[in-house]
């Protein structure tokens, strides 16, 4: 990998981190309302797994979707505008934080019913297969979704039909406030669920962007070859509560401390310096450019108009 590619991974992760921090600030100021779920701590997953995708591949994700959107290259201005409920937002101000879309980039949402996006994603994969295209679909979901029927139904369907879909589990060990131990009685790994449906599974350290990228590249290759679905479980941790309304009292402070030692951004930064891939000046340049970009994004969101009231009846029917 070239230096540029390493720095690109770092910049995307840093952009997500700072974007999320900015969201938190603007939520506190009242510019962002509704439910807001931050991706802080999980950045390596979106960046490591979306970077290797092709433009014609489809991405379908859950409500903690800012990171995936940014990793896919959605611009931070329209993203922030969406959270501000503005007409210039990626979903015209009608979706909000949990329903980000950019059909032009095959970024097919942001879905807020736990596990509901999984069957939908199978449909995009089915379309690729039906049209003899070698594009694939990646669907993200959390540990909480693994007890939904849609997860199991879709894994079975995808396996039987050999659909080109990559099931991507972001295991952050808590479904809202409920720990994985309390909803699964056979340990913490989920790969066996996929294996039950004859879907090959891999587990990866979701705090390590290079590791995520590597296993995803392998799985993408497999899925694109037409051999059927694959499953990746990335272990991670959200550094904030489930949403802005959640002080996360159900987690021990120590658990968070331990995970923070694995901060994907700091560790990757250290790695780049230690390996001599990047110098401090490179990191500083990225910090500066990201800060400038976000300043612009917030400015764009702030200054953008709200949707017209008669927009209320638009976009219901084609």
């Amino acid at each position: 990998m070239e230096k540029k590619e390493y720095l690109d991974l770092y910049r995307k992760m840093y952009l997500i981190r700072r974007f999320e921090e900015s969201c938190g600030e603007n939520y506190s100021k009242g510019f962002i309302r509704g439910f807001l779920h931050l991706y802080i701590g999980e950045e390596a997953i979106a960046v490591g797994s979306i970077t290797p995708l092709r433009e014609d591949d489809f991405i379908v994700t859950h409500y903690r979707d800012h990171g995936h959107a940014i990793a896919r290259g959605l611009e931070t201005g329209p993203l922030m505008a969406e959270l501000f409920g503005k007409k210039t937002g990626v979903s015209g101000g009608k979706g909000g934080s949990m329903h980000l879309f950019d059909a032009g980039k095959n970024f097919m949402g942001g879905h807020a019913i736990v596990g509901a996006q999984i069957p939908l994603a199978a449909g995009f994969a089915l379309a690729s297969q039906y049209q003899n295209k070698d594009s694939i679909t990646v669907v993200y979901f959390g540990d909480g979704a693994t007890n939904q029927g849609t997860f199991h139904e879709t894994m079975n369907l995808a396996s039987v039909w050999k659909l080109p879909i990559l099931f991507f589990l972001e295991n952050n060990f808590y479904g809202m406030g409920t720990s994985v131990e309390r909803i699964r009685n056979n340990g913490k790994s989920f790969g066996n669920l996929a294996e039950n449906y004859s879907i090959p599974s891999t587990i990866v350290d979701g705090m390590d962007v290079l590791a995520v990228k590597e296993v995803t590249e392998e799985s993408i290759k497999k899925v694109r070859s037409g051999s059927g679905p694959a499953f990746i479980e990335a272990t991670t941790f959200r550094f904030q509560g489930h949403s802005m309304a959640d002080p996360a009292k159900y987690r021990a402070e120590k658990e968070l401390e331990e995970w923070k030692k694995k901060d994907p951004l700091i560790n990757f930064n250290n790695y780049l310096i230690k390996e001599g891939i990047a110098a401090d000046i490179d990191i500083e340049k990225i910090s500066k450019s990201v800060d400038d970009e976000l300043e612009e994004a917030v400015k764009f969101a702030t200054e953008s108009p709200e949707p017209d009231l008669n927009d209320i009846n638009n976009d219901i029917y084609a």
Binding site: F58, V60, M108, A116, I118, P119, L120, A121, A122, G123, F124, A125, L126, A127, S128, Y130, Q131, G149, T150, E153, T154, N156, L157, V160, W161
Partner: peptide
């Protein structure tokens, strides 16, 4: 296409395939 008895899965897959142009 005969489907498994999984209404949520195949209705959802229908929706996704429609969104992708089928």
């Amino acid at each position: 296409k005969d489907t498994p008895i999984s209404e949520a899965a195949f209705i959802g897959a229908g929706i996704g395939s429609a969104a992708a142009g089928l």
